[in-house]
């Protein structure tokens, strides 16, 4: 068996009295597209934030290709190769599209602050390397023409794309997408499905997405994990999870007649 790209073992995160995530475990295989689903407030984003280091889980381990990462700072986790996007798009609005992407290359630059202050040759070379790489990524996302625009002036769809482009500048092995379909209409959501597969194939990624849009999840994910009230309620192939009674109850409420649901 290959080492999983990402493995959560019995993770718990507690806010005051609320167990937002309560003993969740799952594994994501390399190059898999993995969906983390659940109703509002189920603890999906909290689990996500534990992986990316925004929160330190109170309990459990998280490993990335066998290396333990739980409790490390976000910058370290990102530098290791886990990049993410945000639910409510966090771009640097007053910086240009190109700069937004170039920032993500800063961790890899090979010069110190003194070289920057004295503008040594090394610095100029590195600067050019970053710019070239950023342009290359922007070209793939067809954002190259907008490189000089302020990112806040971009339309919503392009901002989402730019956020992904920025994350890819980190050369990640795992990409975490937090509700990529949020705010999209059905046509945009439809094309998103293809884009996610294309992302995986082009950049050789493992992708984990948190998503509300069932249609997207069911179509694109190879493995789905459903949580509610911080606990796992179902896990497996999309179809299996979709038809799991506990999932139906969680999404539609307990009073729904199970037999009618199975027929649909």
């Amino acid at each position: 068996m290959t080492t999983p790209a990402l493995k959560l073992d019995n993770i718990a995160k507690i806010f005051g009295g609320l167990r937002a995530v309560d003993g969740v475990s799952f594994e994501v295989a390399p190059r898999q597209i993995f969906g983390l689903i659940g109703p509002n407030g189920a603890g999906k984003t909290t689990a996500f934030n534990c992986i990316s280091g925004v929160y330190t889980p109170e309990q459990g381990t998280i490993s990335f290709f066998g290396k333990s990462i739980a409790g490390r700072p976000p910058s370290e986790i990102a530098a290791l190769g886990i990049a993410r996007t945000f639910q409510n798009i966090r771009l640097f609005g007053d910086m240009t599209v190109l700069e937004n992407v170039m920032v993500a290359g800063h961790a890899t630059i090979g010069f110190g602050p003194l070289a920057a202050m004295f503008r040594l040759r090394k610095q100029a070379e590195e600067q050019e390397r970053l710019a070239a790489r950023a342009h290359e990524i922007l070209r793939i996302f067809e954002l190259d023409g907008l490189a000089g625009e302020f990112s806040k002036s971009l339309p919503y769809g392009s901002q989402r794309k730019l956020e992904i482009a920025r994350a890819l500048m980190l050369n990640p092995k795992v990409l975490l997408l937090d509700e990529p379909a949020a705010g999209m209409n059905s046509r945009e959501a439809d094309s998103l499905k293809n884009q996610i597969r294309w992302l995986r194939d082009t950049f050789d990624l493992t992708i984990v997405l948190v998503e509300h849009n069932m249609q997207v999840v069911m179509n694109v994910c190879e493995q789905v994990h459903c949580v509610d009230h911080g606990q796992t309620i179902a896990s497996g192939e999309p179809l299996h999870v979709q038809n799991h009674p506990a999932v139906r109850t969680a999404y539609l409420g307990a009073d729904v007649d199970e037999s009618t649901l199975r027929q649909s």
């Binding site: 945000f86 640097f92 993500a104 600067q127």
Partner: peptide
């Protein structure tokens, strides 16, 4: 330089900057 760009990114959104390594 790249450093200044990172500093401006911090001004704009610290959490996002941290997430970029």
């Amino acid at each position: 330089s790249s450093y200044g760009r990172a500093l401006r990114a911090i001004r704009e959104d610290e959490i996002a900057t941290e997430a970029l390594g």
